[in-house]
Design a protein around this nucleic acid. Structure first.
Lengths: 120, 120
DNA sequence: CTTTTTGCAAAACCTTTGCACAACC
DNA sequence: GGTTGTGCAAAGGTTTTGCAAAAAG
């Protein structure tokens, strides 16, 4: 991966926020500093960065991919009221059933749904 | 929700298989018994059934929604090799961090990624 | 008879891609 | 200079929707 100003900016944006933005949120944010950046470039870089493991993707019920700059092992909570995504740094335990089934686990994505403090 | 032949068929298809099909897989399966059923009808019913809690949705990295007729509490394993989705009936534990954060959990979706027995 | 559901086709939506040009090394 | 990345616009794939007709109760 070569250096590119656009990619650095995208990485900086994602790593600098904790709200798990979608591609177009990142696009609009990027345009503030780089007015000519295109949506295609944003998508291309996000895909590449996710494949390289620099960032993480979060598949949610809103059908849009969310991105997370924090690659440490953690889970997420999504509020059914306001849609906010909250990091949970105590990840779920891998079910013991997995070893009996002969499966090798290399990653996990656990999402908890419910209501946040403001919404209940 | 009124009775409809098409909806009954869709429910029967989903509840009758354990492979977590996508909308179009269900559509093709449904057409075998109901040749004139439309994709729109399948999508409309799947959405409705998921909202009513009759079936469950699974958001995966392949960007297509998968449906699960088993609504009991369980997790999933997705093989990075063959894409197969395997049920894990020992669900993950809810992280204790949740209660400290003032969150109320009403649901969870845990997906484990790795390789199944055939792919490693 | 009123309301819900359907089939069809078009639209909406998010994401990917082809291409010529620019940037990187 | 060869390769990778960009901007733009068009295309792709999945899901939703408007509408008139059909089915349900």
């Amino acid at each position: 991966m070569r250096y590119s100003r656009q990619r650095e900016l995208i990485i900086e944006i994602i790593k600098g926020r904790k709200d798990h933005p979608t591609a177009d949120m990142i696009y609009y944010s990027a345009r503030e500093q780089e007015p000519n950046i295109s949506l295609g470039t944003v998508y291309r870089n996000l895909k590449q960065l996710a494949e390289e493991g620099v960032i993480i993707t979060l598949e949610t019920e809103d059908k849009r991919l969310h991105y997370d700059g924090d690659t440490s092992r953690h889970s997420h909570f999504i509020c059914n009221g306001c849609g906010k995504i909250i990091d949970l740094f105590k990840p779920a335990n891998v079910p013991s059933e997995i070893k009996y089934a002969g499966l090798t686990v290399t990653g996990e994505k656990c999402v908890y749904y419910g209501l946040c403090g403001n919404c209940q």
